[in-house]
Every structure is written in structure tokens, then in C-alpha cells.
């Protein structure tokens, strides 16, 4: 009986903890967003973080998308050849990349690269009193540290995903033409015919949401970190794990909203 009660208590504590964290993150996000509407604006901070996300993440996102498109074409060929449906490969590649793989894989790569960096930087600022110093210098830390990162994440990831879409389809095209023997024009025609504006738009909307979530979790975990180097390390891990899980969960919800 006691064991059962302990189990229920543990479950209750976990759920309450999750709800508390959800409330705290929501309030944190709302406050940060309110600073985007009220001057002063720290344009330099925005530009710095936008460049960090959009430009410096480009190589890793580009390579991920290129190889994913190539693998997708190969794997699809193996499966579709059994049913003489090889001509559908271009359609599968273009739809998979634009709707799902582009935004999700770019999101996960950026979560690992940028989410971790944001949590580590803000966490270090927290444990070395730099955030308190901002307050004493008449600068709201939410306005200076968090709001520009949220905006940069939201705007930069769609650009990365646009590049990922193009390179992912190009990867599939290269494998299709050079290895599987497709006629280039036929591959492109098949891809173009199936592609609808909504396929690309839904991917870009997902990217914007994922970019916001990555920046939010990076900032929140860093901001809430305590206890020196160990605390900063834990914050970094939490930022990447929570952003990755949220990306996958939100991907399902957004896919359901767009296509069901």
C-alpha cells in the first residue's frame, strides 16, 4: 500500500514539476516577446545572433540536407523498384525534404549547435554575475539577452531550411541521375509536378516555430542555471534535449494541422 502511494506521489510530483516548468517557460517567453514591441531595441545583438545562426550554421545544415537527400533517393529506389515505381522517387524526395526532413533535421542540428551555445553563454553570464551587472547598468537582461535571440532564431531557421530544401533535393537529383540512371529533365519534371506551394510554406512555418523553440529553450535553460560550471553543463544538456524533443513533438502537431 505504501509503495503504491509513493508511486502516486512520485507521479504527482513529476506532473506538478512539468506544469510548473511549463508555466515558467511560458511567462519567460511572454516577457521576452513583450520586449520585442517596446524600445529600446538592441539591433547589434540581433544581427550578431542572426549571423551566428543563419551563416555559421550553414555548413552543418547544408551537409546534413545534401546527404539526407542522397540517402533518401537510394533507399526509395531499393523499395520502389520492387513495385516498378521508380518514377515516384523524385516525388518522394521533394515532398519528404520540403515537408519534413528539411525543417526537422535543420532544427535538430541547430538545436545541438546554437541551443547549446546559447545556454552555455547565458548560463556562464548567470553564474559570473554578468546578468546582475546588466541590471545595474540600467539594461533589462530579457531585452538585451533573450529578445534578440528569440527573434534571430525565428527568422534565421526558415532561411536555413530553404537552403536545406534546395540541397536535399539536389542530393536526391545527383544520386538519381548519376547513380540510378534517371534522365535529368524527367527527374526535375516529376519533382516539380508534385510540389505545391503549401509543401514549402509548411516547412518554413515549421522552421520558424523550431527556431523560436531552440532559442527559447537555450535562453531559458541558461537563464535558470545555478551553481557554477556543473550547473552550466546541465543547462546546456537540458537545452539541447528539451529543444530536440519539442521539435519532434511540434513537428507532429504542425503536420497534423497542415495536412490532415
Amino acid at each position: 500500500m505504501t509503495a503504491a502511494l509513493n508511486l502516486v506521489a512520485l507521479l504527482g510530483r513529476t506532473v506538478l514539476g512539468l506544469l510548473r516548468a511549463l508555466g515558467q517557460v511560458s511567462l519567460f517567453a511572454a516577457e521576452a516577446l513583450s520586449h520585442l514591441l517596446r524600445p529600446p531595441f538592441f539591433l547589434r545583438q540581433f544581427v550578431r545572433h542572426f549571423a551566428e545562426i543563419a551563416y555559421f550554421s550553414l555548413p552543418v545544415v547544408a551537409l546534413t540536407a545534401l546527404f539526407t537527400g542522397m540517402v533518401l533517393a537510394l533507399q526509395s529506389y531499393v523499395g520502389f523498384a520492387r513495385f516498378n515505381a521508380e518514377s515516384a522517387i523524385a516525388s518522394v524526395v521533394v515532398l519528404s525534404v520540403t515537408r519534413e526532413l528539411g525543417p526537422v533535421l535543420a532544427g535538430l542540428m541547430v538545436a545541438g549547435r546554437i541551443g547549446a551555445a546559447m545556454a552555455a553563454e547565458i548560463g556562464t553570464m548567470r553564474v559570473t554575475d554578468q546578468i546582475d551587472a546588466l541590471t545595474t547598468l540600467s539594461t533589462d537582461p530579457m531585452k538585451y539577452l533573450v529578445a534578440p535571440r528569440l527573434l534571430a532564431g525565428t527568422l534565421a531557421l526558415p532561411l536555413l531550411v530553404l537552403v536545406a530544401d534546395i540541397l536535399g533535393v539536389m542530393g536526391g537529383f545527383l544520386v538519381g541521375v548519376l547513380k540510378l540512371g534517371f534522365v535529368p529533365q524527367t527527374f526535375l519534371d516529376n519533382a516539380w509536378d508534385i510540389l505545391q506551394p503549401m509543401d514549402v510554406i509548411s516547412g518554413l512555418v515549421k522552421a520558424a516555430v523550431f527556431g523560436f523553440v531552440i532559442a527559447l529553450m537555450g535562453c531559458w535553460c541558461g537563464y535558470a542555471s545555478r551553481g557554477g560550471a556543473q550547473g552550466v553543463g546541465q543547462a546546456t544538456t537540458r537545452a539541447v534535449v528539451s529543444a530536440s524533443i519539442l521539435i519532434l513533438a511540434l513537428d507532429y502537431l504542425l503536420t497534423a494541422a497542415f495536412f490532415s
Binding site: 553570464m125 559570473t128 554575475d129 554578468q130 546582475d132 545595474t136
Partner: peptide, 13 residues
């Protein structure tokens, strides 16, 4: 007001 922090708290970036 001005404040001098114990460890300086200078902004690394």
C-alpha cells in the same frame, strides 16, 4: 547608481 562586482562581472563578448 554604479556597482563594482566582486569578480568584476565584465562582459566576455
Amino acid at each position: 547608481t554604479g556597482m563594482l562586482f566582486q569578480n568584476g562581472a565584465l562582459f566576455d563578448s
